[in-house]
């Protein structure tokens, strides 16, 4: 076993221009350069990508699942944020 664990990286791939980079998995690599090379071999063997991002997994800041309700529930009762909340006569046509 190695004394130091090889760091974990999160991998994001842009499948083609016009689309956002999308998280596709993770891998271990000693540094950013090797992480990019490994991501190419592990995640783009069949032309899945035009561009790769890697970030150290330890740098990801995530919301706490325990706070899920207080973060996201307030959006549930604001139906006036959706277009279907408003009545427009049919004669007006598509709006």
């Amino acid at each position: 076993m190695t004394a130091t664990e090889i760091p974990l990286w999160e991998v994001f791939i842009r499948p083609r221009n016009g689309l956002a980079h999308r998280h596709c998995g993770s891998l271990h690599a000693p540094d950013a350069e090797m992480a990019i090379q490994a991501a190419r071999d592990v995640y783009t063997r069949r032309g899945e990508g035009q561009s790769i991002w890697v970030i150290p997994s330890s740098e990801v800041v995530a919301s706490d699942p325990d706070d899920k309700d207080e973060i996201f529930d307030p959006a549930d009762d604001k139906i006036y944020r959706h277009p279907s909340f408003y009545d427009i006569p049919e004669d007006v046509g598509h709006m």
């Binding site: 664990e5 974990l8 998995g25 993770s26 891998l27 071999d41 592990v42 063997r45």
Partner: peptide, 23 residues
């Protein structure tokens, strides 16, 4: 054979999300 190696890596990282280390 390279694919099989890749499949092993996808799966190891899926297991790691549950708190077990690669080592």
């Amino acid at each position: 054979v390279q694919d099989e190696g890749g499949h092993g890596l996808y799966l190891y990282s899926a297991a790691e999300t549950l708190g077990v280390s690669r080592d």
